[in-house]
Design a protein around this nucleic acid. Structure first.
Lengths: 229, 229
DNA sequence: CTGACACCGATTGGATCCAAAATCCAGACT
DNA sequence: AGTCTGGATTTTGGATCCAATCGGTGTCAG
């Protein structure tokens, strides 16, 4: 795992904290999103500090940042863990996504330039050529977050990112179980969204994106084995 | 200003961090929500530490907590400030509330016992008897957050709280300008919501709450002077 | 054999000290 | 006179050390 990584297209969360805190946060973020740290895993401050050659203090700061991003949870005098979610919690998070992400997309539409449209098309092209499951997770995330990148409303951005972070592990488990097998559905929906974005059609963008997330939620509901401990 | 305060009905945000961090966080939270610290104000770590007789470290932790709650914002090597929002940002936050809070209410409905219904009715009664503007802010917040108190989905709870926190100052400015003068509208809407909650009618609850927030957003949009620097 | 209690190791929380970065002001130069 | 540069001051970021708290284990009484 590389140390610099961080979220592919996250313009936020980079400035906050000092240099060391940011390094530690990037390391842990990559470890959790990448699947090395899984829900329920405990994170000991000293372990991380020793591994990265820093003191425990920037680790503490990093854990607080990650908590705000939904990647860790804290309990006083007991430390940090990667949150473990129930099936119902994930379902509600998808319902939150259904409502928030169309809003973020509409806020973003006007600010997206043609360069962004081209980048989006390029990412979608790579999704369709791709056949690696872990790579799909990254590209899909990049596609959607890129469509929101014109949105300047800070709480909206951070909440959308947080919702993606929280469900990342379950998305991985889902595709690993072959759930995302009918890729042509995903691709056709992505193309509808991309088209609406290029046309800057807020109504269509909102409708297609909402439907895309809703379908995913329903299909995920048919696979309770994803949530087995 | 009292030191113990904290958010009236916030079940979350109490466990995290140690004792000193929690005290500092509660102090700052009360100062910001209470209006002593206003948008744009800078928060110097040493000032707070000296004032509360703690070291700077718990202040740093507290500032991180508050950042997650939307009450402060950070910049590396530059410190913390109370965020200043534009009119458009506040409007989008209200749109987020329109979409998220009905969801939180529906998730909460089934878990609310009769005791909660009685407490709600009591709070609403006090709102109708009340004639102090600052007191109205508190009671209104308590009413709504109480209706969501049965919701156990952590990210949903924290996001709803964060949205309330972010707009608290502008709500205050709005009522101070006499914007919330037609209290009978607020009260009739609250009664509709309360009734739907008692009947556990998800459809009505969602509809009335959404309408309540939407009307507030639109009325707020007619008062741009609230957002004057 | 089981349950309660006390002790001890492990881990997090807090305080103090030091380093680095940013801001502010003065002075010189254009 | 205005602007740029340099240093001094202020403020935040990081490291180390010490205290408080939690979890497990072992022991003793019932």
């Amino acid at each position: 795992m590389t140390i610099d990584s961080g979220t592919p297209s996250a313009r936020d969360t980079v400035d906050t904290g000092g240099a060391a805190s940011a390094r530690v946060a990037a390391y842990l973020r990559a470890a959790i999103l990448g699947g090395e740290l899984r829900p329920g895993d405990r994170i000991r401050q000293e372990d991380i500090a020793a591994r990265l050659g820093a003191s425990r203090l920037p680790v503490r700061e990093a854990l607080r940042m990650l908590e705000a991003e939904g990647l860790t949870e804290h309990e006083a005098n007991k430390g940090a863990r990667v949150p473990r979610l129930t099936q119902h919690e994930v379902e509600v998070i998808y319902r939150m996504r259904e409502r928030l992400e169309p809003l973020a997309l509409v806020e973003s539409l006007g600010a997206l330039a043609e360069v962004d449209h081209e980048r989006l098309a390029e990412v979608q092209r790579r999704i369709e050529e791709n056949d690696d499951l872990d790579r799909f997770l990254e590209l899909d995330r990049e596609f959607h977050l890129l469509t929101y990148s014109g949105c300047t409303i800070d709480p909206l951005n951070s909440m959308v990112t947080r919702l993606w972070n929280s469900t990342q592990h379950y998305r991985r488990a889902y595709v690993a179980l072959g759930g995302q097998s009918r890729m042509w559905v995903v691709n056709s929906e992505h193309r509808l969204i991309l088209d609406a974005v290029v046309r800057r059609d807020a109504t269509d963008a909102e409708r297609f994106l909402g439907g895309h997330i809703r379908r995913t939620r329903i299909e995920l509901g048919h696979h309770p084995e994803v949530f087995a401990p």
